[in-house]
Computed example of a mutant assay.
Amino acid sequence: MAENDEGSFFADVLKPGSSLQPQFILILDTAFVSLFCILILLVVLTGSLHVYALIAIELALWASVKWFVNELRNTPIPTEDVQSKKAS
């Protein structure tokens, strides 16, 4: 991957609506799956109740992020510029 491609992706993450990009959602899901796998491994190794609580928190956070992205997809994006409203 070229440096320009990498820089443009990270620059796009900070723009409004970037959370709807498929690449961003894929990276986010990969991070949540990785964390879930690590926590499952910790359950197998330790059996600690605290890890079960962390799994519940992680799954709730993942579900809330998925819900938020779904809400963003269903929300119409205004076509009128904010500056033109202020000028009127």
Rank of each mutant, 00 (worst) to 15 (best):
M1C: 04
A2P: 15
A2I: 10
D5T: 12
E6T: 13
G7A: 13
G7M: 08
S8R: 14
S8V: 06
F10K: 10
V13E: 03
V13F: 03
V13W: 02
V13K: 01
L14F: 08
L14P: 02
L14C: 11
L14W: 01
K15G: 07
P16Q: 12
P16E: 10
G17S: 03
S18I: 02
S18H: 00
L20I: 00
L20E: 07
L20C: 03
L20T: 00
Q21P: 05
Q23E: 13
F24W: 06
F24D: 05
I25S: 03
I25H: 05
L26A: 14
I27K: 06
L28A: 12
L28F: 04
T30P: 09
T30D: 13
T30E: 11
A31K: 09
A31G: 12
A31C: 12
A31E: 09
F32M: 05
V33K: 15
V33Y: 09
S34E: 07
S34N: 09
F36I: 11
F36P: 05
F36W: 00
F36A: 14
C37K: 15
C37N: 15
C37D: 15
L39I: 04
L41K: 06
L41N: 05
L42T: 05
V43A: 01
V43I: 08
V43C: 04
L45I: 01
T46D: 12
G47T: 02
S48H: 13
S48D: 14
H50Q: 14
H50R: 15
H50N: 14
Y52P: 03
Y52C: 14
I55D: 01
I55F: 05
A56L: 11
A56T: 08
L59M: 13
A60N: 12
A60K: 12
L61A: 12
W62Q: 08
A63S: 07
S64K: 07
V65F: 06
F68C: 03
V69S: 06
V69K: 01
V69M: 02
V69H: 06
E71W: 00
L72I: 02
R73A: 03
N74D: 02
T75A: 04
P76Y: 04
P76L: 06
P76N: 01
I77N: 11
I77D: 07
P78G: 00
P78K: 08
T79M: 10
T79A: 11
D81M: 04
D81H: 10
D81C: 06
S84Y: 10
K85R: 14
K85L: 15
K85W: 10
K86A: 05
A87S: 09
S88N: 09
S88M: 01
